Amino acid sequence: MRIWSLHPRYLDRQGLTACWRETLLAQAVLEGATRGYTRHPQLERFRAASDPLGAIGDHLAGIAEEATARGYRFDGSKVHRRSTPAVRLEVTDGQLALEWEHLLRKLSVRSPELAARWSGIELPDPHPLFTVVDGPVASWERAAAP
């Protein structure tokens, strides 16, 4: 499961679709609607939010907005709840950098034109749910540091 902290604009079609599916799974886990993935480390940051279900819904909404902007039809009714007031989670610049390198490696194989387009960016914009703060890779991250 990869729930990207970076803005969904950077994802290729496959990445955007996978992030949508995986974040829907995360929503189901947080709702208690599935027994799988309940201990997945990516969910720690959402569980720690003041409104975990609202935060995951806000993440899904950001993905759906990007999909709509690209002309895709992601079913927005699958977003069960948004936060009110809006929740903002923190992501460290170290975590964002790790995810960026991870994404660029994936794009270089399956979408080289996008990898070339984004290659000059040192640190990408975060998903609208996140505010960037200084810090290392997150403690819940299981991918190897770049």
Rank of each mutant, 00 (worst) to 15 (best):
residue 25 L to Q: 12
residue 87 V to R: 00
residue 39 R to P: 05
residue 44 E to D: 14
residue 57 G to H: 11
residue 33 A to G: 14
residue 90 E to S: 14
residue 98 L to G: 02
residue 63 I to A: 06
residue 34 T to S: 09
residue 53 L to N: 05
residue 91 V to D: 08
residue 45 R to D: 05
residue 31 E to S: 13
residue 111 S to N: 15
residue 58 D to H: 03
residue 30 L to W: 07
residue 33 A to S: 14
residue 100 W to K: 09
residue 113 E to Q: 15
residue 132 V to D: 02
residue 115 A to F: 10
residue 61 A to M: 11
residue 130 F to S: 02
residue 99 E to C: 06
residue 61 A to F: 08
residue 55 A to V: 12
residue 56 I to L: 06
residue 91 V to Q: 04
residue 42 Q to C: 11
residue 39 R to Q: 13
residue 51 D to L: 07
residue 80 H to N: 12
residue 109 V to W: 03
residue 123 L to P: 08
residue 89 L to W: 03
residue 82 R to G: 00
residue 72 Y to L: 13
residue 64 A to W: 06
residue 126 P to I: 02
residue 44 E to F: 15
residue 70 R to W: 02
residue 88 R to C: 07
residue 57 G to Y: 02
residue 130 F to K: 01
residue 96 L to I: 08
residue 133 V to M: 07
residue 73 R to P: 07
residue 107 L to F: 05
residue 32 G to T: 11
residue 124 P to G: 09
residue 129 L to K: 02
residue 98 L to E: 05
residue 123 L to Y: 13
residue 116 A to L: 09
residue 47 R to H: 07
residue 119 S to L: 12
residue 133 V to C: 04
residue 93 D to T: 10
residue 78 K to M: 08
residue 49 A to C: 11
residue 105 R to G: 13
residue 25 L to R: 06
residue 48 A to E: 10
residue 113 E to S: 15
residue 49 A to F: 08
residue 113 E to N: 03
residue 42 Q to G: 05
residue 56 I to D: 06
residue 81 R to A: 15
residue 82 R to Y: 05
residue 100 W to E: 04
residue 133 V to R: 00
residue 25 L to G: 00
residue 123 L to K: 15
residue 111 S to V: 05
residue 38 T to C: 15
residue 26 A to Y: 06
residue 52 P to R: 01
residue 101 E to S: 12
residue 84 T to K: 13
residue 104 L to P: 03
residue 131 T to K: 10
residue 73 R to V: 05
residue 107 L to P: 04
residue 99 E to S: 03
residue 120 G to E: 12
residue 59 H to K: 07
residue 90 E to A: 15
residue 25 L to N: 08
residue 129 L to P: 02
residue 125 D to H: 14
residue 63 I to D: 04
residue 124 P to T: 01
residue 34 T to K: 12
residue 132 V to P: 00
residue 29 V to P: 00
residue 105 R to D: 13
residue 103 L to C: 07
residue 54 G to S: 08
residue 108 S to P: 07
residue 41 P to W: 09
residue 94 G to S: 09
residue 89 L to P: 01
residue 127 H to L: 01
residue 97 A to G: 08
residue 122 E to Q: 13
residue 73 R to F: 13
residue 69 A to C: 13
residue 108 S to H: 10
residue 113 E to M: 07
residue 84 T to E: 14
residue 40 H to F: 13
residue 99 E to D: 01
residue 34 T to E: 05
residue 78 K to I: 03
residue 60 L to C: 01
residue 131 T to C: 12
residue 123 L to D: 14
residue 122 E to S: 13
residue 63 I to Y: 00
residue 50 S to D: 15
residue 126 P to V: 02
residue 39 R to M: 08
residue 101 E to L: 09
residue 49 A to Y: 07
residue 30 L to S: 04
residue 31 E to V: 11
residue 27 Q to G: 07
residue 90 E to I: 00
residue 47 R to P: 00
residue 34 T to N: 05
residue 92 T to K: 03
residue 131 T to L: 11
residue 40 H to K: 10
residue 46 F to I: 02
residue 77 S to K: 15
residue 77 S to I: 04
residue 56 I to K: 06
residue 67 A to M: 00
residue 85 P to V: 08
residue 130 F to V: 01
residue 119 S to T: 13
residue 109 V to R: 09
residue 128 P to Q: 02
residue 73 R to E: 10
residue 128 P to M: 09
residue 50 S to W: 06
